[in-house]
Design a protein around this nucleic acid. Structure first.
Lengths: 152, 152
DNA sequence: GCAATTAGGACCTTGATGGTCCGGATTGCA
DNA sequence: TGCAATCCGGACCATCAAGGTCCTAATTGC
């Protein structure tokens, strides 16, 4: 299905809700769970991963919570996907690990998936989380030119 | 990981190998299995799905086999992915089926994934199977302009 | 009639994903 | 100083779809 994980979907929702916090304020995992309608342990898991990626910042103790480290408009979608799902890699043969594919010698598309991955990577880089959460009006993207096969 | 299924990967390999057949000739599943290094039942499965999608044509009986219905250059990658994996849909909330998501009322990104799916869809439409199997030299794509957020 | 081949589907196994839970560390407050 | 709230890190298990195999028809050529 070429789908991304639910955790990534949750992450986008949580990030947009986290944006509702007052300036400099923090939101706790239970509060975010309530706001999003997601289960609290799940939200906590998402926040931990996002914190590990540096997208959010956790503060412990009483009056602790999470807050964004950057405005949503400066967070490209691919960064969230990479944080939650790992690097974009449509197939297993994208890395240069030889010897793992038994069809290696006969495979005619070996190494050819890279441009595809790159094309998708660029598409996801050009969309910010703010674009997903923003007002209904679509904001034209500042980088309209999009050559699929750039010079390698 | 944002990966597509192995079957799709196999499909691309099989299609490129199928292109080796002589003009008008056919290749049988066992032969293709030998050429690709994949298991014969797996190749047969892939071919059946591709035949159902109209990308290849099967001929039964003795001297039967499969052949391409179109040149590889005219088959966009997305067509193979759609045939093998189903339609591109990064998240479950892309269709307009209301009432299935318990967080529906609180979800701030509802319906906002469509542009993302569309962006990826375009990226994959601009790449043909021939591009994946072709010579190392990258062929510049005839449709370089790629507005992420087109007017809706 | 027989062999070769595709067509269609059932079946089982395996791995990743989704989701939950627990103990420990940190912080603020009484 | 003790306590409560909260994040942090990881382990754990259930579920589900993907991967892969196999079997039985249907078709075709010799």
């Amino acid at each position: 299905m070429l789908r991304l994980s639910k955790l990534t979907d949750y992450a986008v929702v949580v990030l947009t809700r986290l944006d509702d916090a007052a300036e400099g304020g923090v939101l706790t995992a239970p509060v975010l769970a309530g706001n999003t309608g997601l289960a609290e342990p799940t939200v906590a898991k998402v926040l931990k991963i996002l914190a590990h990626a540096g997208l959010v910042e956790g503060r412990r103790g009483a009056l602790g919570g999470y807050r964004l480290t950057r405005p949503l408009a400066t967070i490209p979608l691919i960064e969230v996907i990479t944080a939650m799902d790992g690097p974009i890699a449509l197939t297993a043969c994208v890395d240069n690990s030889f010897g793992v594919c038994e069809s290696e010698s006969a495979c005619p598309v070996r190494g050819r998936w890279d441009p595809v991955n790159e094309a998708i990577r660029r598409a996801l880089t050009g969309i910010s989380i703010a674009d997903l959460a923003g007002p209904p009006a679509i904001v034209p993207h500042p980088e309209p030119a999009f050559p699929i096969f750039a010079a390698e």
